[in-house]
């Protein structure tokens, strides 16, 4: 296929997204990355049955932590795709790169304080 994806995306390989821990994600943010996404297998197609579903819950939990800290939870996303979906992989890498670029540098790196207020998000939801 020889598809290109943005060079800013650094891949951390895990045997299954079920292996992804809260701390893996938190430590990445601590290290100063601007965004993280977890790419798991399609729902219902996990070789270990529920690894990707566990990852989804953990991503949700960390999004909650980020929101509580005033960091935009959109900096963290979960995607589901199969190993045969190279084109989709590139799309996701581009989509996430654009999203994070629009949000700007992480406040954890800049030290400029909160960038996100949880209440506003809730009101939008209503």
């Amino acid at each position: 296929m020889r598809l290109d994806y943005p060079p800013n995306v650094k891949i951390v390989r895990v045997p299954c997204t079920g292996k992804v821990d809260l701390l893996h994600i938190l430590k990445a943010f601590e290290a100063g990355v601007d965004g993280v996404y977890v790419a798991g297998c399609l729902e219902g197609e996990c070789h270990f049955l529920s690894g990707n579903l566990r990852a989804k819950k953990r991503v949700g939990h960390v999004q909650g932590i980020l929101a509580a800290l005033g960091i935009n939870p959109a900096r963290l996303q979960m995607y589901n795709l199969s190993a045969a979906m190279g084109g989709r992989f590139v799309e996701i890498a581009q989509e996430m790169t654009e999203r994070v670029r629009a949000l700007g540098p992480s406040p954890i790196r800049t030290g400029k304080g909160k960038e996100f207020v949880e209440e506003e998000q809730e009101e939008e939801g209503k």
């Binding site: 430590k27 932590i65 800290l69 005033g70 960091i71 406040p107």
Partner: peptide, 18 residues
């Protein structure tokens, strides 16, 4: 486990504020 997660969360909050 929770010690690790809380330590990281506190560190993030502090880094956020420089």
């Amino acid at each position: 486990k929770e010690v690790g997660v809380l330590a990281s969360t506190i560190t993030l909050a502090r880094k956020r504020d420089g």
